[in-house]
Simulated scan of single mutants.
Amino acid sequence: MLKVIAACGNGMGSSQIIKMKIDKVFKKLNIAAEIHHSSVGEAKAMAANYDVVFCSAALTGNFNIKNTRTKVIGLVNLLSEAEIETKIKEYLLNQGKAE
């Protein structure tokens, strides 16, 4: 099961919306994922414990993750399920987990 965190500036509205969109896409792709949401500040401190961090493309520079396991994925359109799906598939393909 993938551990995923959705982050936004304050950890309230946008991250909750991203979480719902990500959850919908993972279910569509039949991929088990545990998804949380938080502010970027909280996510920076917790990111190393997750497989994937989703946030606005403008916020990806806030993450300086030392491990090679965690992938930070920036979204241009936070509401685009198509963009989220594309980026999840790219992540899985790079991890060797794509079908």
Rank of each mutant, 00 (worst) to 15 (best):
H37A: 01
L2W: 03
G11S: 01
M1E: 03
Y91F: 11
T60Y: 13
N94D: 13
K71D: 00
K44I: 05
S80G: 09
K3G: 02
K66N: 11
F63S: 10
H36Q: 11
A33F: 09
F26H: 09
V40P: 09
L92W: 04
N64W: 04
K66A: 13
G61F: 07
G11H: 05
H36E: 15
G96T: 01
N94M: 06
M20W: 08
E42K: 15
K97I: 14
K44A: 02
G96S: 03
A6R: 05
M20A: 13
G9T: 14
C55R: 02
A82Y: 09
K27C: 07
A58I: 14
S15M: 01
A48E: 08
N49F: 12
V25H: 06
G11K: 03
E83L: 00
E99G: 06
A6N: 12
G11V: 05
R69N: 12
N10W: 11
L92T: 01
G11R: 02
D51V: 01
A45Q: 12
N10H: 15
K89A: 09
K21G: 12
V52T: 09
G74N: 00
Y50C: 01
M12W: 14
E90M: 08
K66M: 10
A43G: 00
Y91L: 10
L79M: 12
V40L: 05
Y50G: 00
I18V: 04
E81K: 03
K66Q: 12
N30W: 11
I22Q: 11
M20D: 14
V52N: 07
M12V: 14
M12K: 15
M46G: 01
K24C: 12
A7K: 04
E85V: 09
V4H: 05
L75A: 04
V25I: 15
N67K: 04
A32P: 07
L92I: 03
S80F: 01
T70L: 07
N10F: 15
G61D: 12
A58S: 14
K24R: 13
S15G: 06
S56A: 15
E99R: 11
A58E: 15
S15C: 14
K87E: 06
I73N: 03
I84P: 00
G9W: 09
G74I: 06
G74Y: 03
V53G: 07
G74L: 01
I18T: 02
L78P: 02
K3Q: 00
K97Y: 08
K19E: 15
E83P: 02
V25L: 09
V53P: 03
T70A: 03
G74F: 02
E83G: 01
R69H: 12
A82G: 08
H36Y: 15
L2N: 08
T70F: 10
S38N: 04
A98D: 13
S38L: 05
